[in-house]
Design a protein around this nucleic acid. Sequence first.
RNA 1: GGCCCCGUGGUGUAGCCUGGUCUAACACGCCACCCUGUCAAGGUGGAGAUCGUCGGUUCAAAUCCGAUCGGGGUCGCCA
Length: 594
Amino acid sequence: MTTDRTYCGTPRAGDAGRPATAFGWVDRRRDHGGLIFIDLRDHTGILQVVIDPNDAPEAHGAAREARLEWVLRFEGEIRLRSPENVNPKRETGEIELRVRACSVLAVARTPPFPVNEDTEVDEQLRLRHRYLDLRRVHLQRNLRTRAKFCTELRTAMAEIGFLEIETPMMIRATPEGARDYLVPSRLFPGSFYALPQSPQLYKQLSMVAGFDRYFQLARCMRDEDLRADRQPEFTQLDIEMSFVDEDDIFAALEHAIPSAWEACDFRGGHLTVPFPRMTWREAVDSYGVDKPDTRFELLLRDLTGIVGTSGFRVFADAVAAGGIVKGICVKGGDDLSRSDIEGPLTEVARGARARGLAYLWKRAEGWQGGIAKFFSADELDAIGAATGADTGDCVLMVADRPSVVNGALGAVRNHLGRVRRLYDDARIDMLWITEFPMFERSDETGEISAAHHPFTMIHADDLDLLESDPLAVRSRAYDLVVNGREIGSGSIRITDRAIQQRVLAALGIDAEEAQRKFGFLLEAFEYGVPPHGGWAGGIDRMVMEGLGTDNIRDVIAYPKNQQAQEPMTDAPAPVDPGQLRDLGIAILPNTRMP
RNA sequence: GGCCCCGUGGUGUAGCCUGGUCUAACACGCCACCCUGUCAAGGUGGAGAUCGUCGGUUCAAAUCCGAUCGGGGUCGCCA
């Protein structure tokens, strides 16, 4: 049936005179009573079909019946349009299909929302009829681009010797990390598999097995609350390599990601390699966050030494309590009003746990702002010098614990970057953040946990600190950051048994617990483990960044809503009582049913 | 779990702040008829919403108040 198919978006003036058979959906229909024009749509574009009652009375009858989104087949001849009838807005605007025969392959109900235009539609309705949403040009383009991106990644990885290995979807639950999705076992009632949060342990075991360059476009599942850039199911480019250090892993990704990126012509297409590198310390000190948006300056500057002993009690007290004071200089910030700062900007700072946002303007008349009077002329000069403030600028400051100061000013910095348009939208800044801390302490429980994961190798210079000052220990973990968004992370792994034990001990995990949780990995490592490391990055987020969309549902064919439901099939749903009986599962009486 | 925004014919919006003139407007879509060169075709006519739900205030509620449901965003959470 499709042997001689002409795709709607493809014929050009040069095809005039050729017979053609086109298949597609009715995008628009213009019935003149005599002549009928139908814009026929497939994924390649739109073809104008002309049905003349004199040429083809039967086809004309069918075309008169046809409505939007009906599926039609047209047979006829590609004709050049007369010059006054050319439509310059359309790729196929110089030609049209003069129809001999028409068949209706399927009728269609009136669609619940317009398929032929790009209007905003209620999210729930779009998801309920996802097949129609996907039919629209926007999602067609996104998903076709995503597919191309993935194909190119596979090609690029294969080019440099990586082997794609599938890892299981039904695995042992891991106590660490995100909440697991569980799959009950029929043969072992009361026991469960978990869906993988990542193939982490399997890829490391693959290194032990001698597959020295592994990759996978791996599906991962995490039962956590959703966000605009987070779905419960997502896809990672997952890699692991043996006998390597950071440089080798970075080089592999600096080959694969730009290849795919450029093949998709994302944002002009070009990525400069190698990607710049920045330590975690430098990122937090200068940008306030561990995923800095380096497309603009507005860097954080330390003012602790200048204002820590000043007459401004808020600063002095914070410093006396072991805190710090930092500031950012907003160039041309003279136009920031007191209500701009005390309203939205302070809101952003408070949202990041700061108690407030202090401000000074440097004007021709001198330093102004409510707190200017607390500082000496020397102190004000020093603030200006440290922040680089000139006349017409505004300095914003926060005093508190270092983590609060950095977080709050980092948030204010990102906010200002966005609202003051401090960067070029076409610019792509991809960079590595290295030397992350090995451990972090929970604010709530005070417990120490692994910042990346417990198999991350310690920075060689910090081995001695493991017991004495664990929070100062740097790891060999690294993130890839794009325009202020983290898109992936990885590390060189621990393969030395003694170091592994010390790390587990620092985490409060004794030998018995380690054996229970990770025994199979530790045992495997006793049979000849190569030094190795790897990385995993979100495909969905890379495609989002490349396409310039800010919602992950725009790059996933069948996503879930914010409640992790799939409105088209109505998953999740209760199951037949017999299925539960087979699994030895009973639902507790007060459990909420959807 | 907290906070913010949204909910008006099939779709997208206006009206809501400042209650009555709303018997709810506009565009698209839908139905019928007319129309042989349109391309967001055009013309004429028509159908379609008790304004998410429940309760309250009021002589009177799409409009004000409360609760609740649904959707989105965000914080927590996501090694």
